[in-house]
């Protein structure tokens, strides 16, 4: 009985706080994305061959965890199969956040564009029973800085 109460409280907390945090995160992502839209980040491997570009490696990483309620949903999904929507939004948030952090770093050094963008995803603490559901995303690329200004 006591276990059930704890479980339900955790579920409710996870749902309430998790939904609120996710909505807030998405709002901030969308706002920053529109601000950084003018800085293109492209997955093309070869940059324009102009000698006046300086380059620097930029990267952004984030570790995000899924909440208790969504983990419970995902566990249910494991029984029936199908799309695990609760994890899809987790990965979507993580990727967009990592790219934004990379772009922010590029903006800070005055880059004109970012080339050869790559993503790297790792599920850290894999195998630990209590902590499944946190994922790390790293986005990195080469920022090209127009050096004619200096």
């Amino acid at each position: 009985m006591y276990d059930l109460i704890v479980f339900l409280v955790l579920l409710a907390l996870g749902y309430g706080v998790g939904q609120y945090a996710e909505k807030r995160h998405y709002r901030s992502i969308i706002e920053r994305e529109s601000r950084l839209n003018r800085l293109p980040a492209i997955a093309v491997r070869s940059p324009p061959v102009q000698p006046y570009y300086d380059q620097a490696l930029v990267s952004g990483n984030v570790v995000v965890s899924v909440d208790y309620f969504k983990r419970f949903l995902a566990a249910l999904r494991n029984l029936f199969g199908g799309r695990v929507i609760s994890y899809e939004s987790l990965l979507d948030r993580a990727r967009r956040e990592a790219l934004l952090r990379m772009k922010e770093q590029a903006e800070a050094i005055g880059a004109a564009m970012v080339f050869n963008v790559k993503y790297e995803t790792a599920s850290i603490s894999k195998g630990a029973r209590q902590t499944i559901g946190s994922v790390e995303v790293l986005a990195y690329g080469t920022a090209l800085i127009d050096s004619r200004g200096q």
């Binding site: 570790v63 909440d67 983990r71 946190s134």
Partner: peptide, 20 residues
């Protein structure tokens, strides 16, 4: 801290810094 975040969801800032 990460254990708490696992209930509420959200970014694990400690891990982000650690990996960085």
């Amino acid at each position: 801290m990460a254990g708490l975040k696992n209930i509420f969801g959200g970014e694990l800032k400690g891990y982000t810094e650690l990996l960085q």
